[in-house]
Amino acid sequence: MSNLVIAIDGPAGAGKSTVAKLIAQNLNIVYIDTGSMYRALTYKLLKENIDLNNTSKIIDVLNSTKIDFRDNHIFLDDEIVDDKIRTNKINNNVSLVAKIKEVREKLVKIQRNISKNNDIIMDGRDIGSYVLPNAKFKFYITANPEERGKRRYKELIKEYPNIKLSEIIEEIKERDKIDKTRNIAPLIKTEDSIEIDTTNKSIEEVVKIILNYIEKNNY
């Protein structure tokens, strides 16, 4: 790859998307949030009351669905759904959809096509290991479940005032289990990834670490 390609992987709530957006702004490159693509499909399936255990029906919906990025927005069937896909209901169901082989194959194809002609930073669960294994830079961003739960809790408490921190932490642990044990491209840290634990770090500190590493390695 002659263009700049940065892969960021890690579990839910580790800060991947926030960090990736800031890196993209600093380097003036395209940011692709792969998780939002799976969220968009999950949103449509839930909206249409599709049983998430009915794989054949999910594939039917997938084949008649258009998901893409334009101007840093996620589009579902030509509608911007940036905010609609960030609910707790989506959080708790997206891993069930993302583990389906046919879903991953189609969305990964879209992700790879975007990376061919753009300087990009892409974040998700399987970017460095599966989607873009030849990425020039790979980072694995993580944090302990308790810290990730606190971050999710702060995001959700205004919209869901009765939500409990303990429930969020358990949901995070369950998502981790699904993501790490799925048959297709599970969440792993590749040997060539730089691991950054964000538990006791600010977003600014993490961004600085990544930018410094990229600068020192000839970009």
Rank of each mutant, 00 (worst) to 15 (best):
V5H: 03
I188E: 10
T190N: 10
D176R: 03
V108K: 13
R70I: 14
S115D: 05
N134L: 14
M37Q: 01
K89W: 00
R151F: 08
S56A: 08
S202D: 01
N218L: 14
I127L: 02
D9T: 10
E167C: 01
N3F: 06
I80D: 07
F137Q: 03
I203A: 01
N183I: 14
I110R: 12
V206F: 03
D60I: 10
P186C: 07
I8N: 00
K138E: 04
N113S: 14
K164E: 15
R148D: 11
L52T: 07
F137V: 06
I80N: 12
Q111D: 02
D68V: 11
L211R: 13
V94P: 06
S115H: 08
E105F: 10
L156I: 14
H73T: 08
I196P: 02
S166D: 14
R125V: 08
L62K: 02
K44I: 12
L76W: 12
N88W: 09
G124Q: 06
E146L: 10
I188R: 15
I121Q: 04
K101C: 06
K66F: 08
E48H: 02
V131D: 01
N28W: 00
I67E: 06
D176L: 04
L27G: 00
R151K: 13
I214T: 09
V131G: 03
I23H: 10
R152F: 11
L211A: 08
K177D: 04
I90F: 13
L211I: 14
N72L: 10
G13E: 07
I32L: 14
K189Q: 15
I214E: 05
Y31T: 05
T198N: 12
T55S: 10
